[in-house]
Design a protein around this nucleic acid. Structure first.
Length: 495
RNA sequence: GGUUCCAUCGUCUAGGGGUUAGGACGGGAGAUUCUCAGUCUCUAAACAGGGGUUCGAUUCCCCUUGGAACUACCA
């Protein structure tokens, strides 16, 4: 049978690491098994819905290079794939359940439910949740309530005895006493929209989903969903609950370490944030895939294409995993260095433009600059502080310009000589290597260390103690500005 | 509180009845280079505890402990 899996987010916020990890695992599983990856939008919460979230979903998957076989935009044989466009379907099936005596209308007001909850809390009642008040309403009572114009919800009649078991590919059998299952949860809201529980079961069935891969936070509602499949008389799909992605936080006062479901508290969680900070899609995809999954003890670099071949359920971990920002950074640096200079320059330019450091026509300069800084940045955005010297030049002090074990007079002599060499090299169009050689020769001639020629030059050009290599700076600044700055520094040393 | 799930270095993990328990990030040390990075080398660091089963358990079983998730007319 063909594998059919789905990613079914709700557009109520930006796509975050946890969600994307679920999407990735589903997608890879489908690809690795020659199956179909379906995208379904679960927009049944109209209070929290936002169009921005929906657009973010599309742009995030697009950025990561994840294409869905069926879903919004691309369509498919089981559409529509947006739940708000399937309302009649849910209503029909919910009624069917009522007709079968497996669900019932409930007329309880939100206020009554709220009071019930409060009471249960106060009494520390072991039984929490709905009290099944409307479960056994007579026809007359129902008619009376209808007449009052109360819009009812439909609740599932959860058995009060026995237990329900479902099988999880990773976890094995999971059993829950029916009395412990959420007491008669709402299936159809009073606004006619389904809740997650109803919509998800109906759609997964209708769309022929074979494997449900979702985060472990859904385990508690597994038996509930099974009850619904059974009520409808439908085949139960395979379940595979994915380990949660956690965040780590250290209490600033006590120093205690806490773990919890990854959230904004822990740092950036939305893919959009990572993207804006200058993470590369291949780095994020690679790292995220490794939280809760591994291939073997050695391999850690995977392209999307490789994961599409090599991904397997058996290698998924059962324990939750902590999202390690540092390791992501490391991956990003690695992938940064794997990109071509041209690619990188293209990716870097928007940051520099935003910062008002370069313009589009400076692309050649940037291209000259990239090789020198490629291994110095871990995020694309790192380029901005690294280039700020172009715009802001603080004339360096005498102390800054003088390298260790040298004096002012010696430095002055060196810098003057360096200036001559640099000028000559730039004018004759020497390569960095040639310039390097000539300056090293100069150092020998002057009887000083390499640092004695390179450091004053670099600091003269940037006004910074820490900066990119001098040749890169020279090229980024251009001859005119470079000469001006070197002359500035020479004046400082002459004073 | 109730229910369910989980448990190998600080973190991500490999392994699995007999191993010097392997790798990666991060940490520490050193080398290299014009600063900073980067790169290379070396290094410290783990089977939560207690019972079984077994000739032998980190590995299988049970308990304890610890952690997490769920407990909405949210998903």
């Amino acid at each position: 049978m063909e594998v059919r899996v789905r990613y079914a987010p709700s557009p109520t916020g930006l796509q975050h690491i946890g969600g994307v990890r679920t999407a990735l695992f589903n997608y890879f599983f489908a690809r690795a098994n020659g199956g179909k990856f379906i995208l379904r939008v679960e927009d049944t919460d109209r209070e929290r819905y936002s169009d921005e979230s929906l657009q973010d979903l599309y742009s995030t998957l697009d950025w990561l290079g994840i294409k869905w076989d069926e879903g919004p935009v691309v369509g498919g044989p089981h559409g529509p794939y947006i739940q708000s466009e399937r309302l009649p379907l849910y209503q029909e099936y919910a009624k069917k359940l009522v007709d079968m005596g497996k669900a019932y209308y409930c007329y309880c007001t939100p206020e009554r439910l709220e009071n019930l909850r409060k009471k249960q809390e106060e009494e520390k009642s072991p039984q929490v949740g709905y009290d099944r008040h409307c479960r056994n309403l007579t026809e007359e009572e129902r008619a009376e309530l209808e007449k009052q114009g109360i819009k009812p919800v439909i609740r599932l009649k959860v058995p009060t005895e026995g237990s329900t078991t479902f099988h999880d590919i990773l976890m094995g059998d999971i059993t829950r006493e029916n009395k412990d299952i959420s007491p008669d949860p709402v299936l159809l809201k009073s606004d006619g929209f389904p809740t997650y529980h109803l919509a998800n079961v109906i759609d997964d069935h209708l769309m022929g989903i074979t494997h449900i891969m979702r985060a472990q936070e859904w385990i508690p509602s597994g038996p509930l969903h099974v009850l619904m499949y059974e009520a409808f008389g439908w085949e139960i799909p395979q379940y595979c609950h994915l380990p949660m992605v956690m965040g780590k936080e250290t209490d600033p006062v006590t120093g205690e370490v806490h773990f919890a479901k990854l959230s904004k508290r822990h740092g950036s969680t939305s893919v959009r944030d990572f993207r804006a900070k200058g993470y590369l899609p291949e780095a994020l995809l690679n790292y995220v895939s490794l939280v809760g999954w591994s291939y073997d003890s050695e391999t850690e670099f995977f392209t999307r294409e490789e994961l599409e071949k090599v991904f397997s359920l058996e290698k998924i971990n059962t324990a939750p995993g902590v999202f390690d920002y540092q390791k992501l950074d490391w991956f990003n640096g690695q992938y940064m260095r794997r990109r071509s200079n041209e690619d990188l320059a293209q990716l870097l330019m928007p940051y520099l433009k935003d910062a008002g450091i370069l313009k589009d026509e400076d692309m050649d300069k940037l291209l000259d600059f990239v090789p020198g800084i490629k291994e110095r940045i871990t995020l694309l955005s790192d380029i901005v502080p690294m280039c700020s010297f172009v715009r802001e030049y603080q004339v360096p002090s005498v102390e800054m310009l003088i390298p260790k074990k040298m004096d002012q007079a010696g430095t002055l002599t060196a810098l003057k000589a360096v200036y001559e060499v640099v000028k000559q090299c730039m004018e004759s169009g020497d390569s960095d290597d040639q310039m390097q050689q000539k300056l090293c020769d100069l150092a020998v001639k002057l009887g000083i260390k390499n640092a004695g020629v390179f450091n004053p030059l670099r600091i003269a050009l940037t006004g910074l103690q820490v900066s990119p290599p001098p040749f890169s700076c020279l090229r980024l600044l251009g001859c005119e500005e470079s000469y001006r700055r070197i002359e500035c520094a020479i004046k400082v040393l002459e004073a």
